[in-house]
Design a binder for these strands. Structure first.
Lengths: 118, 118
DNA sequence: CAGTTCTATAACTAGATGGTTTTATACGTG
DNA sequence: CACGTATAAAACCATCTAGTTATAGAACTG
């Protein structure tokens, strides 16, 4: 609900590397090295992405000796999805709206000033 | 599905002004001036936000004399939601995982390695 | 045609972002 | 204790972002 939370969440999701990291974590915990492996990127580069994800609350980190295993935290994803869900009717209605429009055109109702489709 | 599409969509959503603009457009078409009114921001500032939204495919614009009415385009919102929906099980499972953890603690299974409570 | 309204463009600024390399820290192992 | 491994932090750089003001263009209005 907090605007800052949505800001940070959507911003974190707006990067393909970070989305790939989340996809990897969906399969289970992973260390920084494991997460970095698939990417042509330095380890500090990956660490910076992880910091972004952590500050957005999308991952959390444990401690296992020198390792800092990362784990997916899905509740912020739910928050983002809840925001998007408010718009669901707008894409679900699109077929209906198209039908309405086509109906009007056939009936010759078009041209009456400007007709808001939605 | 295209990574660039998700990049642009999530990046566009990562700003409270732009989310507010989308919320306003959910009530119907609006001109730039109408969209700018609620914000303590210059008109060019709002125009720049609209350009971001348009390039992300989240709005489209018509033409009505000098006005360029904006309209919500919801399909990219659906694309974003579809991406998030892949993670739905991870937040729906969280109660189950908590149950599992409490069960283990009761059974005295804690302390085997480290079980992160989070 | 002159003026007004609506919107976009240009040029600029401050700060954030995404990446790098280098260095430091923390922990386990010999 | 010395060394290797895993990660973070620092410093730096190029680019992007979000905002500004000032200006220009496009269309209506008188």
């Amino acid at each position: 609900m907090a605007s800052d939370t949505l800001d940070a969440t959507f911003a974190a999701l707006a990067d393909p590397t970070r989305r790939a990291i989340l996809a990897r974590l969906a399969q289970g915990e992973a260390t920084v090295m494991e997460l970095a492996a698939p990417f042509a990127m330095s380890q500090p580069g990956v660490s910076k992405h992880l910091r972004v994800l952590e500050r957005a609350g999308l991952i959390s980190r444990g401690r296992d000796a020198q390792r800092r295993p990362c784990r997916l935290e899905a509740t912020r994803l739910k928050t983002a999805m809840d925001w998007l869900a408010d718009y669901r009717s707008y894409w679900e209605e699109s077929y209906q709206r198209l039908d309405d429009l086509l109906g009007e055109l056939e009936a010759g109702t078009s041209g009456a000033g400007e007709r808001e489709v939605r």
